[in-house]
Design a binder for these strands. Structure first.
Lengths: 335, 335
DNA sequence: TTGTATGCGTTATCAA
DNA sequence: TTGATAACGCATACAA
């Protein structure tokens, strides 16, 4: 049961391969009559163009490489979902690579998608180094960063407004009367962590609060991280009355530590998360958090990439808005 | 900056394209000396074989299609992560398609991966119909189902032991003295739901408990579903003293409903989830649940597919073990 | 051991 | 409007 090719259709209709090709790809210079005959025969015979041959010839694969840190993390899952949705809509396929936040694997992943002849790349870089992205820039292959960006690299990107997110979260706590506001941040090489911290500082400054250094830590990613950091934070004096965490994940760890210390959220300590993941609203104390439009981020990245596939496009940098979702993990400071 | 091809290397070394090809793909019948010369030149020139041309010629793409219901769901995310990891290890790439649990999109997704000339397919079918999978069977393309299976279709699959999982969860509750054990199940067209229910029934039977019908509902997928069903369940008389939910997701909704009804987990009602997702251990009341080896499921599926890529393989059906993780959402029945 | 020639299924150029 | 022919880059049967 071989696949039917242009040659088969040509043979069946008596036209040349060339004419069949032109007729089927809706090119001009084919008489209406001929086209109908050919299209009908092709349909009946179940002709499907061979993408491989087509790609070899045209140097276009209608495939994009998507590289993320951890597809099991629902944050990246949502990003990828958005990309896939938008890509599919435009008849592009997605080749997915996972880096596990490992820079070497990122380098390899890029090699791989390049060898797959993808038309473009959408990547959330580890940011542990930037050579691999610089290299992409040099190669001239269309790509867009998503979720993270390099402040000193002129690349396409789609991110969310992390500075503002950090600001909103912190301001919310300040307006509730908190003064000892700790931040448990993510790894600082990641732009979103850096920028949320900037937002945090801006809020403190705006409201005339200067921050004791020890209230800020960085490097937390998992719930366990949040748990550990919060535990030591709770032993400090003065104890923070509010904690702003890098992610909802981290927040859950924080809340666990608070619980185990015999304290209550939000009565004793307010907690603000980041992302608004699926569980944020359903934990025993629904989490106040910064909502980031994850799927939209992916969709937008796919759209930008599609634009960039055309020649001579100016760099496109998109910053999606975020909003603060106030739930029950925060309340007025009562000390 | 064109890519360097075999022809380029041939020209540079003075050998024919053929010899270069043979030398580079480690075929016999090339003198050691020639090989060295060629390999060296190729390396220096940065030769990378063109996968497209190679695939066109060989009819092998080293690409597999992975089709899941919802990549933003960390369950599927973990499956895909496992597949990608194992595939990469064997130098296969993954083309990811999302169906949103929609049967039509599943059909389309299969069309797409077929046109991408994938060497094989790994799919978690929606199971709303089975024609699309039957069709795959007929086509003879290697594929393996994962996470879900058809009891009446002779396909490769990798699943977890859902019957036993349902049994373990229910038995655990029975041994704690519960008699009114409700099950909030998932959609019954999904094999895992059907099988967990079977395990539930087997446990009840084994311990001589016959079940009142209204204690079992089906169709729950989200936290909201769990919340709604649990709310109405709590109004029943007699009220169940324990609830076994289709997933941890559903469980979180259940716990919320219980909380809002002014009842306590586990004192008033015990809850058992399924999956052991990342949040199960970190909710205020850590969830007793059935752990399923998600990433391993993906890895195993990729391994099975790889085997099936060889000719004349017998069908392979794998059932991975699960275990019960007892945490704090279950306790002795005290009514 | 090495080279020549052909084909994989398309698309594109150029004549007819 | 249509057809012959070449080319994309690689692999292979066969000849040398």
């Amino acid at each position: 049961m071989r696949r039917v090719t242009l040659r088969d259709v040509a043979k069946a209709t008596g036209f040349s391969i060339n004419t069949v090709s032109r007729a089927l790809s809706h090119k001009p210079d084919v008489s209406e009559e001929t086209r109908e005959t050919i299209v009908e025969a092709a349909t009946k015979m179940g002709y499907r163009p061979n993408k491989l041959a087509r790609s070899l010839r045209s140097n276009k694969t209608y495939t994009i490489g998507v590289i993320v840190a951890d597809i099991a993390n629902p944050y990246f899952g949502a990003l990828v979902k958005g990309v896939e949705k938008e890509a599919r809509k435009r008849h592009y396929s997605v080749i997915l690579l996972n880096t596990d936040e490992d820079y070497e694997r990122e380098t390899e992943a890029i090699q791989v998608v390049l060898e797959e002849h993808v038309d473009g790349i959408i990547i959330s870089p580890t940011q542990k180094e930037k050579e691999t992205i610089k290299n992409l820039l040099q190669l001239g292959i269309p790509f867009v960063l998503f979720g993270r960006r390099f402040s000193d690299l002129a690349t396409n990107y789609v991110v969310t407004d992390d500075v503002h997110g950090g600001f909103l979260a912190t301001e919310h706590l300040i307006l509730l009367g908190h003064r000892q506001i700790a931040m448990i941040n993510g790894p600082l090489h990641i732009s979103s962590a850096k920028e949320r911290f900037q937002g945090y500082r801006e809020a403190l400054e705006r409201y005339g609060l200067k921050q004791d250094q020890p209230l800020v830590t960085a490097g937390a990613v998992t719930m366990e991280d949040g748990y550990e950091v919060a535990k030591s934070l709770l032993n400090q004096n003065p104890r923070p009355t509010a904690i702003f965490a890098f992610s909802d994940f981290v927040s859950f760890g924080v809340m666990k530590a608070i619980r185990e210390a015999g304290l209550k959220v939000p009565e004793d300590i307010s907690v603000v998360g980041y992302d608004d993941n699926q569980f944020a609203s359903c934990s025993e104390i629904p989490l106040t958090t910064v909502r980031v439009p994850k799927e939209e981020l992916g969709i937008s990245a796919a759209k930008v990439l599609k634009e960039q596939l055309a020649d001579n496009q100016p760099i496109k940098q998109v910053e999606l808005p975020v909003d603060l979702i106030v739930r029950q993990s925060t309340s007025s400071c009562n000390t």
